[in-house]
């Protein structure tokens, strides 16, 4: 009898509401694509989609890292600067004549190290992630100009090969190596979140950090780990960007953190933490990419419309999250 009364207290429907935002993003993406195809004949070419991936591969990787951070209820403002710093350091070291392999290793270590340090400050000294990663953002951007005030071109063989290598089918459609790397990162991240303790701890901490602590979860370690992961993803993103542009520029990727956060939110991850998927983030990045492509195709619209549209979409999705009542705190 008691069991029955307990059953009756169940208030939510069985359909998980947390899936609604992701489904909405998917729908939006299909609509946007449909609009593109109906308006511009060239849009239906599969290469358009591939180009979205090619142009936004680095954004996708960085957004995956950000998804981890936001799932714990934190935020990482440093990613744009870390992307730039990684590209800058790579370009600088290559110009100094270091071997490509060594440069890769060094470049890939800087981001996670900074992320680790920021995570430590956030955890051990209990300072808001917003402030700490803001300092990290200043630091990384400052390092960029410290290395060089102007852009450094990359002429290294490995880099140019990675930049120009096309993987495609006989009909001429192709993707770059960056896209493959980006998808590998997505796959690893999705597996980590769904099937490892670290991933589950990320969700638990995003849901309720105090509970996590009392349940004996390694809250501090997890929190430091997500900022390290975000730093690593930003570093990979930086390398991909340097493949893409074949240079390191001190002022590249300024404000990128906003695009990344927007992509994650549009992808259905709740900014308070505890709910969201890497798959949603992929969709979010695609939405941004398709909008950019649409605006480019149109020709009459100026680049600032991208920002206005992204702002509008952010509003729509945040409102949606609010309406279906995703709030765990």
């Amino acid at each position: 009898m008691t069991t029955l009364s307990l059953m009756a207290t169940r208030t939510w429907s069985r359909l998980p509401r947390r899936h609604v935002p992701v489904l909405a993003t998917l729908l939006l993406l299909l609509v946007l694509y449909g609009v593109g195809v109906s308006q511009y004949r060239a849009f239906s070419n599969i290469q358009v989609i591939f180009n979205v991936f090619i142009d936004n591969g680095f954004l996708l990787v960085v957004a995956v890292g950000m998804t981890f951070v936001i799932l714990t209820g934190g935020i990482d403002l440093s990613v744009g600067s870390v992307v730039a710093m990684t590209a800058m350091v790579s370009a600088f070291l290559l110009r100094e004549g270091l071997p490509a392999a060594l440069v890769l290793v060094i470049a890939l270590l800087i981001g996670p190290t900074l992320g680790f340090l920021m995570g430590c400050v956030i955890h051990f000294f209990d300072i808001q992630p917003f402030i700490v990663t803001l300092a990290g953002m200043f630091f990384a951007r400052g390092m960029c100009t410290f290395i060089s005030g102007s852009s450094i071109p990359i002429s290294d063989g490995f880099w140019t090969r990675m930049s120009q290598q096309r993987i495609g089918n006989p009909s001429g459609n192709f993707v770059s190596i960056s896209v493959i790397i980006a998808f590998a990162v997505v796959a690893v991240a999705a597996y980590t979140l769904a099937y490892t303790r670290l991933g589950r701890n990320v969700y638990a901490i995003g849901g309720n950090p105090q509970s996590g602590l009392l349940m004996g979860l390694p809250v501090g370690r997890t929190r430091i780990a997500v900022y390290t992961i975000s730093g690593l993803c930003a570093a990979i993103g930086g390398i991909l960007l340097s493949f893409y542009t074949l240079s390191g520029a001190p002022l590249i990727a300024v404000g990128m953190e906003l695009d990344v956060i927007a992509a994650v939110v549009i992808g259905g991850t709740v900014l308070t933490g505890g709910s969201g998927y890497v798959f949603g983030t992929v969709l979010g990045v695609l939405v941004l990419g398709v909008i950019q492509t649409l605006i480019t195709f149109d020709g009459s619209l100026n680049s600032w419309w991208t920002k206005i549209v992204i702002g509008g979409l952010l509003f729509a999705f945040i409102l949606l999250q609010r309406l279906i009542g995703i709030r765990y705190k």
Binding site: R200, Y203, G207, N208, S211, G274
Partner: peptide, 11 residues
């Protein structure tokens, strides 16, 4: 109750 309401019962 010190659990995570965003996770499943089993988790």
């Amino acid at each position: 109750v010190n659990l995570c309401t965003n996770l499943s019962v089993a988790e």
